[in-house]
């Protein structure tokens, strides 16, 4: 269940956002990806999930080369992601937001109602787990920022991923909710899901992750458990701009 990249590069208009980044994440663990702003973390996510085609390099997932594969195929292969500025389907209900992510196979099956008993039960289950099941008929765009973050997570989980990529899960949410999200990640990890988290909140990163990869200028400069990263001078240097 490994997610790994080899020499992944991507530049925008001559500026290298990713510079031959070679990274291997630990399966079954909570991995964190940290680094100063503009160090290429989000571009890395976009390349890994197929939203952007890298200029060169490879992405491998579960032993298969998935470089240049369409995002929906990567999602179906078991990799789910959230977006940096939380994205939900604003004019759909919370329940529908989650139901979109349900799998269906044949064309005939896709013409059935999305509200099959089985799917609705599972969707409600995820909403309940996020603690927002009382809002299932609310329009997503009208929910609070924190609720939308939870809703987005519920949607991703509905697609039954083995690996979950979270882009700044704690961004812009209050401390109580941060704790809640952290607990959810721990629980889900205990249930066997691998996480890769981009996050700026260092307390959260240090307390939550098993393995940290530090990015600077589009490539990893250090990796290891929190105890090692905390005292790594290169990391400090990257953050302080030395």
């Amino acid at each position: 269940m490994t997610l790994a990249t080899v020499e992944l590069s991507k530049s925008f208009g001559g500026v290298a956002a990713l510079d031959a980044a070679t990274v291997t994440f630990r399966p079954g663990q909570v991995n964190a990806l940290i680094g100063p702003n503009g160090s290429g973390k989000t571009t890395f996510f976009n390349c890994v999930t197929g939203m952007i085609r890298p200029d060169s390099g490879r992405v491998a997932y579960q032993g298969k080369d998935i470089t240049g594969t369409a995002p929906h195929r990567i999602a179906r292969a078991g990799m789910g992601r959230t977006f940096q500025l939380c994205r939900v389907f604003g004019r759909m209900t919370a329940l529908d937001n989650v139901l979109v992510a349900a799998r269906s196979g044949s064309l005939v099956e896709r013409l059935r109602s999305p509200r099959s008993r089985d799917h609705v039960e599972r969707a409600r289950g995820w909403l309940a787990r996020m603690g927002i099941d009382h809002l299932e008929h609310a329009e997503a765009g009208a929910m609070s920022w924190g609720q939308q973050k939870l809703l987005e997570l519920a949607g991703v989980l509905m697609s039954d991923p083995e690996t979950v990529l979270l882009d700044e899960p704690a961004g812009g949410v209050n401390p109580a909710l941060i704790d809640r999200i952290a607990d959810l990640v721990r629980e889900l990890n205990a249930e066997g899901k691998t996480f890769v988290i981009v996050e700026h909140n260092m307390d959260l990163v240090m307390s939550l992750s098993d393995h940290i990869v530090v990015f600077d200028r589009g490539r990893p400069i250090a990796e290891g458990p929190p105890s090692v990263i905390r005292s790594d001078e290169r990391v400090l240097g990257a953050y302080l701009g030395v």
Binding site: P71, G80, F83, F89, M92, E109, R110, S113, P114
Partner: peptide, 23 residues
Amino acid sequence: RSRFGLGLKAIREDEDKAEALGT
């Protein structure tokens, strides 16, 4: 009122997001 239709409406709302969810 089908799953296909729900996917289409998801595209209308946010195409990248819909694709990232496997549509």
